[in-house]
Amino acid sequence: MKYFEDLEIGTITRSPRSYEVTREEVIEFAGKYDPQPFHLDDEAAKQTFFGRLSASGWHTAAMTMRLMVETFQAGEPQAGLGSPGIDELKWIKPVYPGDTLRTESELISKRRMKSRPDMGLTKSETRVFNQDDELVMSMIGNGLIRVRDPDAPVED
């Protein structure tokens, strides 16, 4: 089991597989959660910045979450406790049906929580790339992870 103390700033973790974006999934997701015409209709999409049917940014974030969870599951089990949120999310390039996405996450900071000495707070930058290695999305997210020794002193 990997605990807070085992995490090293600068570590980069890559998704073990990629995710193929399908037209059907783009339309299904948009129909349920982001029913804007350029996510639902080819002709409407042609008249926009996107030029063709594109995935919702929220769909891209959901596919990213899937890849991140699969990455966690493929690696050494972690004493993860969930996430208190995201600090930054950027949709950099449109994602289209037929694209294949992959992720890499870099641990950029970590600290023990003074209010909860049994937990650590991590901050990671996740970058999402398409099949041409173009950056399509980035986010900085926070994670909570169990501390191996909650009685150890919390450093400032």
Rank of each mutant, 00 (worst) to 15 (best):
M1N: 06
K2V: 15
Y3C: 12
D6H: 12
E8Q: 15
I9N: 09
P16N: 07
R17P: 05
S18P: 07
Y19W: 11
V21D: 04
E24H: 06
E24T: 06
E24W: 04
E28G: 12
E28Q: 15
F29L: 04
A30E: 03
G31K: 03
G31Y: 08
G31Q: 04
K32D: 08
K32M: 12
D34E: 09
Q36K: 10
Q36A: 08
L40I: 02
L40M: 03
D41F: 06
D41S: 07
D42S: 00
D42A: 13
A44Y: 09
A44W: 01
A45C: 06
A45H: 05
A45M: 00
K46F: 05
T48W: 03
F49V: 01
F49E: 07
F49P: 10
L53S: 03
L53V: 04
L53K: 00
S56K: 11
G57Q: 02
G57V: 11
W58R: 08
T60P: 05
A62R: 06
A62N: 04
M63W: 00
M63D: 01
T64E: 02
M65V: 02
M68Q: 07
M68D: 12
V69P: 09
V69Q: 02
E70N: 07
T71E: 05
F72V: 14
G75P: 02
E76T: 14
E76H: 09
E76Q: 13
E76I: 12
E76F: 09
P77T: 12
P77V: 12
P77E: 13
Q78K: 01
A79G: 07
G80I: 09
G82E: 01
I86F: 14
D87L: 13
K90Q: 14
W91F: 15
W91P: 01
I92D: 08
P94E: 09
G98H: 01
T100H: 08
L101S: 10
L101Q: 03
E104K: 08
E104H: 04
L107A: 07
L107S: 08
I108A: 05
S109E: 15
R111N: 08
M113S: 15
L121W: 01
T122W: 11
T122L: 15
K123Y: 09
S124F: 06
R127F: 04
D133R: 11
V136R: 11
S138Q: 14
L144N: 01
L144S: 04
L144H: 05
R146G: 05
R148A: 13
R148Q: 13
D149G: 03
P150I: 11
P150A: 13
A152W: 04
V154A: 03
E155N: 06
E155M: 08
D156R: 10
D156L: 08
